[in-house]
Design a protein around this nucleic acid. Structure first.
Length: 428
RNA sequence: GGGUCGGUGUCCGAGUGGUUAAAGGAGGCGGUCUGUAAAAUCGUCGGUGCAAGCCUACACAAGUUCAAAUCUUGUCCGGCCCA
């Protein structure tokens, strides 16, 4: 039986549904893992049943900004859930919000978002496809841009759409309500965002919309608008926002508390080892496929030493993105460096520039740290040295005004885990 | 359009003429302790310089003053109230 997807031209394929080996209830259980909320759960079951009966895959929507993609573990939480749908035979529709971004000039301040040209958007779209392929199945992924339908809306149509929502409804949204009560500005256009996103769901006839917990309002708006316009409303599936390495804020690149899925295994491992113990259960649940029963054993301090559990966590995650071998060697390397206090095998190498050297080949250590990128300024370098945070070949530096004779192979260590190997200056 | 309040370092926030590179908090960074966890604890956080020092900073600009984050004027941006 072949399936025809009604509304798309960019569909990468239309595969017949494989007969899933799990029962619907097992599928529900799998999908439910880690979710923050499913609204309403009963509808999800109904949709899954219906799809199984008709052989027509569900359209699972995810909306994204057209900014340069940056896939970290937090983002991957949502993607991995989408992947589960694909593994059950359903189709994922990625909507790149190029049009919503064009409207956007968020919070007005000094950071005017540059308008993206259509070429840039197309380029970003491509990048997305490659990046998403690390988690998603490209065969079952459709990428669409919302300018396709939003750009065609006439003002009259927009007004009509806008009439489906009230200000009070929009102001329910927590961030709007907060900003309003704090006296922070809210641009009128920002109120249109939920509407625009909701219309995306209408345009593609979404069956399920995935999103982070912070998207609750927008996604529910989609559900409401579909109902309003006579479509069967989508099920809204919300994933919690993964807490970042700091243990407090959500993982994001701009906060610097993230683990990118393309990062070097060793780096990933180190970052994951630094998370707070209390984060482990969440990370296991959201970032790995370790069965929940086993997770409970791993995260019970009486049954498993937290350190071992965390190492396991690191290996599991790295295995997903780099393979089991890379995971094991990252673990081994970590042991060497942190347990046996050896120098890592690989580290950045810096060739010392001649113009910071004196005639007899000496370098002021503060200048060296700055040149090596280990300190942002010489003042900071000085501080690091004074506080005993810098060592050369294992010897702590004490004099911030000190000089050093460069020898190739010298290893500079700053703080606990920043290493650089020096290469002697070369004649130019 | 009118009235009114406000714009301080990464963020929050004190400071209403000099001793202010600017209190306090958050956060960051480094040391000790550890499991590169948490908690605790000590130190540190504009730039440059080996240093003395110099430079740049309290929205922007001009001014008053021996001296301005602090006073005046203008500009820009924002909140609230009224229309």
């Amino acid at each position: 039986m072949s399936v025809s997807t009604t509304q798309t031209s960019t569909s990468l394929s239309s595969l017949p549904l494989p007969a899933p080996s799990q029962t619907i209830d097992q599928q529900i259980e799998m999908i439910t893992r880690g979710t923050f909320d499913i609204v309403p759960k009963a509808d999800l079951k109904a949709k899954l049943l219906q799809s199984a009966k008709s052989g027509k895959p569900l359209q699972v929507k995810l909306g994204l900004d057209p900014t340069a993609p940056d896939i970290h573990l937090g983002f991957a939480v949502v993607l991995r859930k989408l992947r589960q749908f694909q593994d059950l035979g359903h189709e994922v529709v990625i909507i790149i919000g190029d049009y919503t971004a064009l409207i956007g000039d968020p919070s007005g301040r000094s950071t005017t978002r540059p308008m993206l040209s259509s070429e840039e958007i197309a380029a970003n779209g491509k990048t997305y496809v490659t990046q998403l392929a690390k988690v998603l199945d490209p065969e079952k992924t459709i990428v669409r841009f919302n300018s396709e339908w939003l750009g065609k809306l006439s003002f009259a149509e927009l007004v009509n759409l806008a009439s489906k929502m009230t200000v009070a409804q929009v102001m329910q949204r927590e961030d709007f309500a907060n900003r309003f009560s704090l006296g922070q500005p809210i641009g009128l256009h920002e109120l249109l965002y939920p509407l625009a996103q909701a219309y995306d769901s209408v345009a593609i006839h979404a069956d399920v919309e995935m999103g982070g917990q912070d998207q609750t309002f927008n996604n529910l708006a989609g559900r409401a608008l579909q109902k309003e316009l006579g479509q069967e409303p989508q099920v809204v599936l919300l994933m919690p926002l993964l807490v970042g390495l700091d243990g407090i804020k959500k993982m994001s690149k701009s906060l610097g508390n993230y683990v990118g899925i393309s990062e070097a295994p060793i780096l990933m491992f180190g970052k994951l080892m630094s998370i707070s113990d209390s984060l482990m259960p969440t990370y296991f649940e959201l970032c790995t496929d370790v069965p929940m029963e086993e997770v409970r054993t791993l995260t019970d301090g009486n049954l498993t030493h937290p350190r071992e559990a965390k190492k396991r966590l690191g290996r599991e995650i790295i295995t997903l993105y780099h393979g089991a071998e890379a995971a094991q060697s990252a673990d081994d390397e970590f042991e060497r460096v942190h347990k046996e206090h050896q120098v890592p095998e690989e580290m950045p190498e810096i060739t010392v520039s001649l113009d910071i050297c004196t005639a007899d080949g000496q370098v002021r250590v503060t200048a060296l740290l700055v040149a090596a990128g280990l300190a942002p300024s010489s003042g900071e370098a000085k501080r690091l040295i004074q506080q005993g945070g810098v060592s050369v070949d294992g010897l702590k530096l004490t004099d911030p005004a000190g000089m050093l004779e460069i020898q190739t192979g010298q290893v500079i260590k700053v703080g606990k885990n920043r290493f650089v190997r020096l290469l002697a200056p070369t004649e130019v």
